[in-house]
Amino acid sequence: MERMMKLKTLPTTLIGIALLGAAVALAAWPAATKNQEQQLRSAAVRVDEVTLAANRSGIRLAGVARAAQQARLSFVLPGRLAGRTVEVGDRVRRGQVLAMLDSSEFQLAEAAAESALAELEVRLGQARRDEARVAQLKAAKAATTEEVEMAATSTRVFEASIRSAEVRLAEAGRLITESALIAPFDGTITGVDLEPGEWAGSGKTVVELAGEDDLEVEVEAPETVFGRLAQDQEVVVDLSLRGAVTTGRVSSQARAAGGPGRLFPVVVSLAPHPELVPGTTVEVLLEIEEKESLSVPLEAILNPGSSRPSVFRVQDGRADQVFVELGRLDGSRVAVVADLEVGDAVVVAGHTALADGDLVEVRR
């Protein structure tokens, strides 16, 4: 009987123990789940600091060195090109004849003017002698006042005719002079546009001449740079293909953009250098003073090509998403405008799957 009673109470005891174990397990489950969730949501990241960006930046603008003194030479008068004495690459001196028009017509006009002038000078001499003789006759009461006046008038007419003939002769000489194309300065012929026998219109380029001394380069600067350049500002000029460096100065700046890309022409006068000749490829290095701004590593930027790039700042073990406005690149860092401070830690690795407010674990 006693044994049967023990057997009856055993299942009840086992059920009580099982219920007690289940209760303990249920009591511990929320804490375990919370710890497991925290471990699952903590992302391992690497960070870097926000710093001040450099307040000076540089930009390289490429161009080709050219002679500062250049000319596209043409005739004032139209005519047939009778000859050209130079070819591309020839060195010329100031005053040297480079090309000639057919001036036969002008030479004939000059000869005719010279003949007319000579004839008038002879007739003027005769008129003056006649005037003197009539004056003597008048003194002897052998000539009338009217005859004296006529002789004087004849002299004045010939004098005026001679002045006109001298003008015509000078004009013929000018035309002959204008029919020769003269080098205005020492230099090198860089282009020829007309061959002998072709028609040279007034103002049509015949030859192109470049000076030999001072060199310059014209580059095109974006609007953001153009507004910060100053007249006579010194710049560094890199002759990268020749492995040399020289200097230059801003000599002129256009006041209007040179094209639809809003690029502004800037001319830089180049300092002499043995490796620098017309046609040399150069790069002008412009240093620009910048406003003080913050800088973050380039790899910290999320969605840099979107309208709202951002970074994750680590604060109190959590990722705080901060939207930024991107500025200039400086090596592996980029200037930003954002609600950040110098010394803030921003995520540079492990942030592709982060969300705002996620727990993070910083690893070195």
Results as ranks from 00 to 15, higher is better:
8 K>G: 09
15 I>Q: 07
19 L>E: 05
20 L>Q: 07
26 L>S: 08
28 A>D: 13
41 R>S: 15
42 S>D: 06
43 A>D: 05
50 V>Y: 01
57 S>Y: 09
61 L>G: 01
84 R>Y: 05
85 T>P: 01
88 V>I: 13
91 R>Y: 09
93 R>D: 13
93 R>A: 15
94 R>P: 01
95 G>H: 03
99 A>V: 04
99 A>G: 02
100 M>E: 15
101 L>N: 03
101 L>P: 01
102 D>T: 09
103 S>M: 09
112 A>I: 06
124 L>F: 08
125 G>Q: 03
127 A>Q: 02
128 R>G: 12
129 R>Y: 10
130 D>V: 09
135 A>I: 05
136 Q>F: 07
138 K>I: 12
139 A>P: 01
140 A>N: 11
141 K>D: 15
146 E>K: 09
149 E>K: 08
156 R>E: 13
168 R>Q: 15
171 E>I: 12
171 E>N: 13
172 A>V: 06
175 L>D: 06
180 A>F: 04
183 A>K: 03
185 F>W: 01
190 T>S: 14
191 G>E: 05
197 G>T: 11
203 G>E: 04
205 T>M: 10
207 V>K: 01
226 F>D: 14
226 F>H: 15
227 G>I: 08
229 L>K: 05
230 A>Y: 06
233 Q>N: 10
242 R>P: 00
250 V>D: 00
251 S>H: 04
255 R>N: 12
256 A>V: 12
257 A>K: 01
262 R>W: 07
269 S>T: 10
272 P>W: 06
272 P>K: 05
275 E>F: 08
280 T>F: 01
281 T>R: 12
285 L>V: 14
290 E>Q: 12
293 S>C: 07
303 N>R: 13
312 F>A: 11
314 V>M: 02
318 R>K: 13
321 Q>E: 15
323 F>L: 12
324 V>P: 00
325 E>L: 12
327 G>S: 07
328 R>D: 11
329 L>K: 06
333 R>K: 11
334 V>L: 03
341 E>S: 14
343 G>R: 04
353 A>W: 06
356 D>W: 09
360 V>E: 00
361 E>I: 10
